[in-house]
Simulated assay, not measured.
Amino acid sequence: MGFFDGYNVATSGMSAQRTRINVVSANIANAQTTNTIDGGPYKKQDVVFEEILLNKAQKANNNDIEQSNNKNTPAELRGVGVKSIVQNDAEPIMRFEPAHPDANEDGYVAYPNINPVIEMVNLIEAQRSYEANIAAFNTHKNIDTKTLDILKA
């Protein structure tokens, strides 16, 4: 394990959670958006994470199965990344509001199928995960600082 590996893992987690926080915030902000550029109500978005190799030099031409069976091969450093941001295809919520400018001919308005309470829980979860990665980063920094102090003495 390299000197900066712990930092790399923690920062990959922080970057992924920052993306999640941005997407969830956009969902909350657009929970009442009934008309978008594409037409129709805003569609909720979700972040899909994936495991990534942080050691790119070792990634080329490696076979994970062969590596997992060989006990002499060092484990590769893995982190988390954003695989994609996907739109939720849930049906919109129809509300009877005939005076609304986006009402259809029957007087119903299509609202995004976004529950603000669930989105707030997702936001808090992402924030806590971000904070946990900060704590891991700081712990690694403190360990390195103590190690350097011992080596200086």
Results as ranks from 00 to 15, higher is better:
residue 1 M to V: 04
residue 1 M to R: 00
residue 2 G to P: 05
residue 4 F to P: 01
residue 4 F to Q: 12
residue 5 D to C: 01
residue 7 Y to Q: 02
residue 7 Y to H: 06
residue 7 Y to F: 15
residue 9 V to N: 09
residue 11 T to S: 14
residue 13 G to A: 02
residue 14 M to S: 05
residue 16 A to V: 06
residue 16 A to Y: 04
residue 16 A to L: 06
residue 17 Q to K: 11
residue 17 Q to H: 13
residue 18 R to F: 11
residue 19 T to K: 14
residue 21 I to C: 12
residue 22 N to H: 04
residue 24 V to T: 14
residue 25 S to F: 00
residue 25 S to P: 03
residue 25 S to C: 13
residue 26 A to N: 14
residue 27 N to Y: 05
residue 27 N to F: 06
residue 28 I to L: 15
residue 29 A to G: 12
residue 30 N to C: 08
residue 33 T to R: 08
residue 35 N to Q: 15
residue 39 G to K: 02
residue 41 P to M: 03
residue 42 Y to W: 11
residue 43 K to H: 13
residue 44 K to G: 03
residue 48 V to E: 10
residue 50 E to T: 04
residue 51 E to A: 11
residue 53 L to T: 08
residue 54 L to A: 00
residue 55 N to I: 02
residue 56 K to R: 13
residue 56 K to E: 15
residue 58 Q to Y: 10
residue 60 A to M: 12
residue 63 N to C: 01
residue 63 N to L: 06
residue 63 N to G: 02
residue 64 D to G: 01
residue 65 I to G: 01
residue 66 E to L: 14
residue 66 E to Y: 00
residue 69 N to E: 12
residue 71 K to R: 12
residue 71 K to D: 10
residue 71 K to F: 11
residue 71 K to E: 10
residue 73 T to C: 06
residue 73 T to M: 12
residue 73 T to K: 12
residue 75 A to T: 13
residue 79 G to Q: 02
residue 79 G to S: 00
residue 80 V to G: 08
residue 80 V to F: 07
residue 81 G to V: 01
residue 82 V to M: 03
residue 83 K to A: 11
residue 84 S to F: 00
residue 85 I to T: 04
residue 87 Q to K: 14
residue 87 Q to Y: 13
residue 88 N to Y: 00
residue 89 D to N: 15
residue 92 P to A: 06
residue 92 P to C: 09
residue 96 F to T: 09
residue 97 E to Y: 01
residue 98 P to C: 05
residue 98 P to H: 03
residue 98 P to W: 03
residue 99 A to F: 11
residue 99 A to M: 09
residue 101 P to S: 05
residue 104 N to W: 06
residue 105 E to F: 10
residue 106 D to F: 12
residue 106 D to I: 07
residue 107 G to K: 02
residue 107 G to I: 08
residue 108 Y to T: 11
residue 109 V to L: 01
residue 109 V to K: 09
residue 112 P to I: 00
residue 112 P to H: 00
residue 113 N to H: 10
residue 115 N to L: 01
residue 115 N to Q: 11
residue 116 P to M: 14
residue 117 V to H: 09
residue 117 V to N: 10
residue 118 I to W: 12
residue 119 E to A: 10
residue 119 E to V: 05
residue 119 E to H: 03
residue 122 N to I: 05
residue 124 I to H: 08
residue 125 E to K: 12
residue 125 E to N: 15
residue 126 A to I: 07
residue 126 A to V: 06
residue 129 S to N: 13
residue 130 Y to I: 08
residue 131 E to T: 12
residue 131 E to L: 04
residue 132 A to F: 08
residue 134 I to V: 15
residue 134 I to R: 04
residue 135 A to V: 13
residue 135 A to I: 09
residue 140 H to R: 10
residue 141 K to E: 06
residue 141 K to I: 04
residue 144 D to F: 02
residue 144 D to Q: 14
residue 146 K to A: 09
residue 147 T to L: 11
residue 148 L to F: 13
residue 149 D to L: 02
residue 150 I to A: 07
residue 153 A to Y: 11
